[in-house]
Design a binder for these strands. Structure first.
Length: 191
DNA sequence: CCGGTGATGCCCT
DNA sequence: GGGCATCACCGGT
């Protein structure tokens, strides 16, 4: 396959989730660059009771069943957005939740979007980083190869720098170890 | 630092 | 109508 981006993301969410650590989300807002390094992810899959796609295709989860490399944005708890990178083959219903970023550029814009918060609490949670990058429902289904919101693939991080553990904030399939984060990274949402 | 809790809207049963 | 892949704030330590 010549399309490296699609080839990488077309793998299972369980494989893609650790691979996205060290990759970057790049966003342009009013001509300004806002960028962050992914430091924490979680995998979700159709055969996974914690996944939105578990009960099959619905209008809400339609994007999850589409091609890899697109963004699945969902709204939860009446006020928060979270974003996922769709993975796997078409029809598979799998995605990787982006749970935390290390800010690399545009910290002033992120801080402004976050009500003035600076530092780790600016982007150390899935809804926090969406707020910082101004990602909401209108970005659901966005092609992550296209500006103004792109996923930048970086070389894989060393296996020894990755911690694998159980996912956060779910009530189903709590034992499944599909959360991945960078060891000793201060921007991870929770140790 | 820690745990408890209220805010608030949409999706699916 | 119940539950939710969350967050900020509050009070006690």
């Amino acid at each position: 396959m010549t399309d490296v981006f699609a080839a990488l993301l077309s793998q299972s969410s369980e494989l893609v989730a650790p691979r996205l650590l060290g990759c970057e989300l790049s966003r342009q807002i009013d001509g300004q660059l806002v960028r962050g390094r992914i430091v924490e992810t979680e995998a979700y899959d159709q055969h996974d009771a914690a996944s939105h796609s578990y009960k099959g295709r619905t209008p809400r989860t339609e994007v999850m069943f589409g091609p890899a490399g697109f963004l699945y944005v969902y709204f939860t708890y009446g006020m928060h957005y979270c974003c996922n990178v769709v993975t796997g083959a078409v029809g598979q219903g799998s995605a990787v939740l982006i749970r935390a970023l290390e800010p690399l550029a545009g910290e002033d814009i992120m801080s402004s979007n976050r009500g003035g918060i600076i530092g780790q609490r600016m982007t150390n949670g899935p809804a926090k980083l969406c707020q910082a990058l101004q990602i909401d429902r209108q970005w659901n289904g966005h092609d992550l190869r296209q500006p103004p919101l792109q996923l930048i693939i970086r070389p894989p991080v060393a296996q020894t720098d990755i911690v694998q553990t159980t996912r956060i904030g779910i009530t189903q399939a709590k034992a499944v170890p599909w959360r991945f984060y960078l060891r000793n990274d201060q921007y991870v949402s929770k140790v």
